[in-house]
């Protein structure tokens, strides 16, 4: 049952991956003269040279044919070569993807941890005031642009106090050490995660409040367990279910946030790579980064679906 559901969901993502890859391909190749334009301004390249390059890269073919070739290659694992780095796009993108996932993952874990702790405190407190303050902070949190809060963090902790390095993943020239790595990771992860703390808190808090009114909680309490134990043991798992859905929906926004945070802290991830390769007109890399982002988002959505159906078997709506 579960596996059939899983296969169906996975196959269901193929049409949208195809359509978006086509849209992105057009977006990159339609404006101006396309990739061969990089050399158009170069005085050392004669019109004949440019013509040769166009032919070599298949740029004289109709766009639809070019897309077909790209798709065929992409499916077989050949994503083209970077014009700038002169190595395979997949190799270039892979390193950066891991860095982005490290940053995003750390930020997510930190913000979830803080969100759960604050949410439980907020829900168990009976005062109406704390509830409203948390709801207010949630909205404020998602309104602060990370490129601004990041800049303020660098200004205060790096420039003024000199507690943390101002960017990068490690100290250049120094030998590997965990402390060095962590001190570079801490600031961007906290900045990126802080946007979400209040939001998670809000979901945990309102979810827990709602669940605690259910009959089965009353039953559990009637059987003699305390309010705290009832909340943590029976309330929390059920309150967390809506959070799973939100996590999946927020994945694209989280990645957008990570891309900006990377640029602020010079973190060598996909955001930096996309910015650099757009400026350098490195078309194969641009397309590669975009497709990896699409795959990450689709995968996040799938995982959400699976987690949801595992946590709450009532929603396994297959047929």
């Amino acid at each position: 049952m579960v596996s059939r559901y899983a296969v169906k969901r996975i196959l269901g993502t193929i049409p949208r991956i195809l359509l978006i890859s086509f849209i992105l391909f057009l977006l990159i190749h339609l404006p101006s003269g396309g990739p061969a334009d990089i050399y158009a301004g170069d005085p050392s390249a004669s019109p004949a040279d440019i013509e040769r390059i166009r032919e070599l890269w298949g740029l004289d073919e109709p766009l639809l044919v070019q897309y077909g070739t790209w798709l065929q290659n992409a499916v077989t694992g050949n994503w083209g070569r970077s014009f700038v780095e002169r190595r395979g796009v997949l190799d270039v993108v892979r390193d950066r993807l891991l860095n982005t996932l490290l940053l995003t993952g750390t930020a997510l874990v930190l913000s979830l941890l803080a969100g759960f702790i604050l949410g439980i405190i907020g829900a168990l407190g009976t005062r109406r005031g704390t509830y409203n303050i948390v709801q207010g902070l949630a909205v404020l949190g998602m309104s602060i642009p990370t490129f601004w809060s990041g800049a303020l963090v660098i200004l205060f902790f790096s420039v003024y106090l000199q507690w943390i390095p101002s960017g990068g993943m490690y100290t250049i020239g120094a030998s590997f050490s965990w402390i060095d790595r962590l001190s570079h990771l801490a600031a961007p992860a906290v900045v990126l995660g802080s946007v979400y703390v209040a939001q998670w808190t809000r979901y945990v808090q309102s979810g827990l409040r709602q669940v605690m009114r259910e009959d089965y909680i009353r039953t559990a309490k009637a059987k003699g367990i305390g309010h705290l134990e009832a909340s943590l043991k029976h309330g929390l798992p059920n309150a967390a279910i809506p959070l799973v859905t939100v996590l999946g929906l927020e994945a694209p926004k989280l990645i957008s946030g990570a891309m900006v945070t990377e640029v602020v802290f010079s973190w060598p991830g996909l955001g930096r790579l996309l910015t650099d390769s757009l400026l350098a007109r490195d078309y194969p890399v641009v397309m590669g980064v975009l497709m990896v982002l699409v795959l990450v988002v689709v995968l996040a959505n799938l995982l959400t679906d699976f987690a949801y159906s595992w946590l709450d078997p009532r929603v396994r709506y297959d047929g």
């Binding site: 949208r16 991956i17 359509l19 978006i20 849209i23 992105l24 977006l27 990159i28 694209p252 926004k253 990645i255 957008s256 891309m259 900006v260 996309l274 910015t275 757009l278 641009v286 980064v289 975009l290 982002l293 699409v294 988002v297 689709v298 959505n301």
Partner: peptide, 14 residues
């Protein structure tokens, strides 16, 4: 679904 699978920022940048 297709457009929602790209982060808006990346789409707008490109």
């Amino acid at each position: 679904d297709s457009i929602l699978s790209v982060p808006i920022l990346a789409l707008a940048m490109v």
